[in-house]
């Protein structure tokens, strides 16, 4: 609560300075929110050149719209929303797929695989430890995340890396908090199944 209030005061102070014409204050806003913006852009846009253009475009929009910002959300959340929408517009213009229906087939091989793993190796706990030591888990997960549709990648990043709440993610993406939660469950399930299939192929058999 206090953190939020403190953050809000800082945001107001920075916005006031920008509106008075201090461009350095806008530089501070960019530095404060660059991580969030880059996370969204890297998750949603594949082309490196497009990413650079979009990042600059996002902050130019923020600058133009700043006089209309009413502090109904955190400044970072509002900037995240502008960034997300800019990415969506870009994907629409390029006619790229936003959320392929990869989750339509609700096959869940995890139970079978877990059973097989338990049968094959006796104690799965040990095998999990072996996987962590034997493989660089972040590298493997990175490849699996890269296969997810843009929107699911973004939700996973915002929730697990940026540690935003369902409501904040909902504000950024324009999705109801319940839908955000549901998509996150589905995305994690898909990643888990993919991960288990990966281990089945590479480590057990």
């Amino acid at each position: 609560m206090n953190n939020n209030t403190g953050q809000n005061t800082t945001d107001r102070h920075l916005v006031d300075r920008v509106l008075r014409g201090e461009s350095n204050a806008f530089g501070i806003i960019i530095k404060n929110t660059e991580n969030l913006v880059s996370k969204i852009i890297f998750d949603m846009i594949i082309n490196d050149g497009d990413r650079k253009d979009i990042a600059q475009d996002v902050y130019l929009k923020v600058y133009q719209k700043l006089p209309g910002f009413k502090f109904q959300s955190k400044l970072s959340t509002w900037i995240g929303q502008i960034c997300y929408n800019t990415c969506i517009d870009h994907l629409r213009k390029k006619k790229l797929v936003l959320a392929e229906s990869i989750f339509e087939t609700e096959t869940d091989p995890s139970n079978d695989i877990l059973d097989m793993m338990n049968n094959a190796q006796g104690n799965f706990d040990e095998s999990v430890d072996t996987f962590v030591i034997g493989k660089n888990i972040s590298e493997i997960v990175k490849k699996k995340i890269a296969k997810l549709p843009a929107i699911y990648k973004t939700l996973i990043s915002l929730y697990h890396n940026e540690e935003l709440s369902y409501d904040e993610i909902g504000t950024i993406t324009g999705l109801p908090a319940g839908t955000v939660k549901s998509y996150l469950f589905r995305a994690r399930r898909e990643l888990k199944n993919d991960l288990l299939l990966h281990y089945k192929k590479e480590d057990l058999w």
């Binding site: 660059e34 991580n35 890297f42 962590v132 493997i140």
Partner: peptide
């Protein structure tokens, strides 16, 4: 298995632009 997955997600490096955005 989920905890392992979440650990993997949290260990993802922060993406960064190769130019000074500000």
């Amino acid at each position: 298995v989920y905890q392992l997955l979440i650990t993997g997600i949290k260990r993802q490096p922060q993406p960064a632009f190769d130019f000074d955005l500000s």
